[in-house]
Structure formats: C-alpha cells, structure tokens
Design a protein around this nucleic acid. Structure first.
Length: 577
DNA sequence: GCCGTTTTCGGCCCGACTGTTTTCAGTCG
C-alpha cells in the first residue's frame, strides 16, 4: 500500500467521522493527516518502521497508529467499524450538489436513507421537507440535484477514457487474428467529456476474435449489436464499443468510428463531388469497393486534405487548402501557473523546480495564491518575500533553467487585484483569477473581469470561467467584451490544462484569436504529477486549431523575459502618470 | 484528533451564499 492509498483511506475515515461526530475538528484532523501523508518526501513504510511517524506535523498518536495498521494489514479496525455503521452507498449521496455530509447524516439518522434511490423516494414522498433544517426549497433542490448527478453517471473525463481505452487495447494485443486495433470515437477526438470507449479492430475472422475476447473476459457482457459492432462494459458502467473491419477497410472503419457525425456528413458531401462514398462497409467509388488499409488513404482517395482527429467536430477544416500545423506538447519550452507548499501545492519550491528541470524546461514560472484565497493558504506580502528568497537560493541548482517569480492573484469582487502595485512590481508575471463570488450577474462579472484586465501588471487571465467539468458550471460573462479587452491590453488568456477544468474551452479559441488574444498553456500544477496537465492543455489548443506561434510558452526564454520586462516597465510608467 | 504552550486545555482558515431561519447552519471554494 503506497502513501496515496493510505491517504484515501484516511479521507474515508474523515468522512465517516463527519457523519457521526458532532466535533468537526476530529474529522479535519484525519483530513490533515491524509494531506501530511501525501506530502511526505521520504518513503512512508520506512518512516513507519523507524517509529517516527508522529514527528510529522499533522500525524499524532491515533492517526499514526492507524497508518501503521493500514500499512501492516491493508485495513484498519476503526475504519471497518465505521463502515459497518453505514450502508455501502452512503457517499454516492455526495454527488448531489449542495448536499453534504451534515445533511447526509440527518437523512440517514431520521429516514434511514442510504443511497440515491432512497433519497429520491423520500423526496418524492415529501419527507425531506419535514426534516429539521430542511424545507420545501431544499427538497426541490435535492430532487433536481439527483437528476443532475444521474445525468453525469455515464459520462467521464477524458483522462479516464484514455486510461480505460488503452488498457482494453493492450489486452487485445495478444489475441490471434487481430491485425490492428486503434482507439477511435470522442476519445480519439480528445473531447473533454466522453460517454463511451470505441475501438476499431482489423481482422479477417470476427467470430474467432469475438470468441477469444469472450474467453479472456476483456469486458463484461460482450454481445454483438450488428454484424460489425459488439458492445460490452468495463469498470462498472463504462460502455466499450468494438468496431470490426477487414484489414483492407481498416482506414475507412477508423474514420467512421472516430466521427463526429457532423464531420462525417461534411466529408461525404465533399467526397460525393468526386463520386466517392464512405459507408459502414468501406469506401466506395461509383459503387465499387476501394481498399483503404490506412485512414490517410480514405482522405487521399476522396481527394480531401487530412484532418487531425481533434479537428473533426465539424467539417470546417475540410475546406482548407492545406492541413493545419497544430501545436504539440513537445513545442512547449516552459510554463507558468505552478503552486508550491507555500500555498496549497503538495510539493516544495525545490521539488517543483527540479521536476521542471528534469522535463528539460527552459523556464518555469511559480505562482502561489494571494492573501484573499485564505482557504488555499494565500501568501501575505511577507510570505511572498520569503518565497522569493527561497527561489533565489535555488536558482543555481536548477540552472540553466530560468525561474520566474509570479502569483496567481485573486480578482476581487470589484475587479481589483489582490496585491498592491508595489508588490506586483516585484513580480515577473501576474496571473489574475476569480476564486470567489461565482454567481454574480453576467454584467457585473464582465465588469469585474474587464477591470482586472485594465490593471497593467496583469500578464495572464487564469481559468477563464472557473468551471469544474462534471461538477460545476463556470461563471458567466460577456466573452466578446472580455476577449476584445484582453486582445487590446495584451493580456494572455491561459489554457488551463488541468483535466478537471480545461478552461478556456476550445470552442472559444477561434473567436478569442480573431480578437487578437494570445494564449499560454498552463498546468495549474499543485504537485509534480500535475505537470502532465500540459499534455491535456495541448489537446485543448489543438481542438481550437492553434499552432505553436499563437502560444506564448513555445517561445525561447529570452523572448519570455523580454516580454515580462517590457510589460513591467510600461506598468510602472502608467502608474507614474 | 492535533498542536503548542500563556505546558494538559483551548483553538483549529475564512468569506460568500442560500435557505432556513428571527440569529444560524451547511456547503463550497
């Protein structure tokens, strides 16, 4: 059991305590212990063996003993006792928005509700409205929330989809008769939220392959839908569709299974002009079958330019004279928006820098939270100074990588930036982000963000809408005005690559670009692992049709430093006037 | 439950928002 698994179980204990104990601080203590375990630099097992667990801040006698027990036996007596007190589905209720552990405790104690179905039944019978602290509105909100949670049940984030699809594809590798297998569908198009996994299989013997897949139990409930498609499920409720094609039709099948419907419709409209037709059973010319072992063959035969899968949400790229040069993750020379343990990051300044250096970055910009984001440990001016000293002390160790000192400063309710100008002037860059008062009216929110963009120290606008995919809608604003102002003021809009955010939405890229906006692909990393968000961020940029030249952090370090310098000089001049 | 000390108890991150409330509790970020 590694430290991440231990942390998950400590979190589970914390949730049970919050259900059963009136003292909220006991639950928080277990939460803190989980964070402490995650943040350990040394091996957890070795630390436990040496008996020095309780020396870690946040781990005491009780939590220390539980961690040791978890490592030794894989579970904990205390956790098992807590689990026995509640139905197994109790925490699925957390998926209902604005329905937290306190309310869960009430419905469980008063009505014996232990899962979504029971909660829904209680709501329909009007029992929830009668509970103390509840009312008609709360009941209504809960019923709407259950619907919301159900809608999201069979949808999942892209990284989960990729992981599942890759794992299924790997299992297919050993099956005799499979000549090729590729992931298709919305996962191949890198859509941020996906509903199923599509895999295209090239084979001459569908029946034999199906039988082998059955024997190996690659998915559950494998059954043919028609002569070319079979369906199963994996990991509970993720549907997997297998599209079978003869090796000579693999290209056509891959194109069809990748979609989207709108793209395929447009493709066939254009192909028809030269008498080609893409059908479920392959590519045809004047009704005669054409061999297309590779996807590129289909485009070439039909006389159309190749369109990258990410750009196939509609047919617009088919009208282009030549293919786009889309950005690749390897084009990124460095990045910004990186947190450390100074605020709510899990890794220290040195760890984040070293990991960036190991990724061969030319530069890295650190940006912890500002004071108003107190829940995230935002930095006071004093703490910011300490961080600068620490950065300076490590510069040599990570050379030649260049380190830029920044902040992710809150955009306050009126659009002001959460540090005074004197402090901002000491920074290389400023990411301005909204972290509070999300449901302002549209006009007010637009005004707020426009005000922030007017601050000459602001370099980037962070996660444009604040959305959390599958859990929270972003705040609304007049995008047209915001993009226009950002373009005019030379403030870059961040493409936040955190897979839960992917914000800016790729659907907005085209318009923003037309209004003169430039972009930076940032990971919003709170740990070393989260540098991986640069890859997901790059997918967003590709879906938006961006090439390297439109992305700030494809530039060499000299250009970056010069940009920061000149903006700062302009800001100081503007202030003197 | 953990921490730290004004050393064995008292405080623990905090503000906005909402719905339930006549003064507060729960949720969320």
């Amino acid at each position: 059991m590694d430290k991440w698994q231990v942390a998950r179980l400590l979190e589970e204990i914390s949730r049970y305590i919050e259900l059963s104990e009136p003292n909220p601080f006991k639950a928080r203590a277990f939460e803190r212990a989980a964070r402490a375990v995650e943040g350990l630099e040394n091996d957890l097992a070795a630390l436990a063996k040496s008996g020095e667990l309780t020396k870690v801040s946040g781990i005491g006698k009780a939590t220390g003993a539980i961690i040791e027990e978890l490592l030794r036996t894989g579970t904990s007596q205390y956790l098992e006792e807590l689990r026995a007190q509640y139905p197994p589905g109790i925490f699925e209720l957390l998926r209902v928005p604005k329905f937290g552990l306190k309310k869960i405790a009430v419905v469980h104690a008063e009505l014996g509700v232990g899962n979504l179905d029971e909660l829904e039944a209680a709501g329909r019978e009007g029992k929830l409205a009668k509970l103390k602290g509840f009312g008609a509105k709360t009941q209504e909100q809960i019923l709407a929330g259950i619907k919301f949670a159900r809608q999201r049940e069979s949808r999942f984030l892209l990284p989960t989809g990729i992981e599942v699809a890759e794992s299924v594809r790997e299992q297919l590798a050993g099956i005799e008769g499979i000549e090729d297998a590729e992931i298709a569908g919305s996962i191949r198009r890198r859509l941020e939220i996906v509903q199923n996994v599509n895999i295209v299989i090239a084979t001459k013997s569908i029946d034999d392959v199906l039988a082998a897949m059955e024997r190996r139990a690659i998915v559950e409930g494998l059954a043919p839908l028609d002569e070319r498609i079979a369906k199963g499920t994996t990991r509970g409720d993720i549907s997997v569709l297998f599209h079978f094609a003869a090796p000579d039709d693999f290209g056509a099948a891959l194109l069809r299974a990748t979609g989207s419907d709108a793209f395929l419709e447009s493709f066939n409209e254009r192909a028809a002009k030269s008498d080609y037709e893409l059908r479920a059973d392959g590519l045809f010319h004047n009704g005669r079958h054409v061999k297309t072992p590779r996807e590129e063959d289909v485009f070439a035969k039909a006389g159309l330019i190749f369109v990258e899968p990410e750009r196939r949400e509609d047919g617009s790229d088919l009208t282009r004279k030549k293919p786009r040069t889309l950005i690749e993750a390897s084009d990124l020379r460095g990045t910004f928006h990186v947190h450390t343990t100074f605020s709510d990051g899990r890794n220290s300044v040195l760890e984040m820098l070293t990991a960036a250096r190991e990724r061969d970055f030319e530069y890295l910009g650190l940006s912890d939270h500002s004071p108003t984001a107190s829940y995230a440990g935002g930095l006071t001016v004093e703490r910011l100074k300490q961080q600068h000293a620490e950065i300076d002390a490590h510069r040599e160790a990570v050379a030649p990588m260049r380190v830029f000192r920044g902040t992710e400063a809150d955009i306050l309710g009126d659009g002001a930036i959460d540090y005074d100008d004197k402090t901002l002037a000491k920074l290389d860059f400023v990411i301005a982000s909204v972290h509070s008062r999300f449901n302002m009216p549209k006009d007010e929110m637009t005004e707020r963000i426009l005000n922030a963009l007017d601050n000459p120290y602001v370099t980037f606008l962070g996660h444009l809408t604040g959305r959390l995919l599958l859990s929270r809608e972003g705040y609304t604003m007049d995008y047209e005005h915001v993009f226009e102002k950002a373009g005019e003021r030379g403030v870059m809009i961040e493409i936040n690559g955190n897979p839960n955010r992917l914000d800016l939405d790729w659907r907005h890229v085209k318009r923003a670009l037309a209004l003169g906006v430039r972009f930076s692909i940032n990971p919003d990393a709170h740990s070393i692992r989260e540098y991986g968000a640069l890859v997901t961020g790059t997918w967003v940029a590709r879906k938006g049709g961006l090439s390297p030249k439109e992305i700030f952090n494809t530039q060499p370090v000299e250009a970056i430093a010069e940009h920061f310098e000149s903006r700062k000089a302009a800001a100081q001049n503007a202030n003197r006037r």
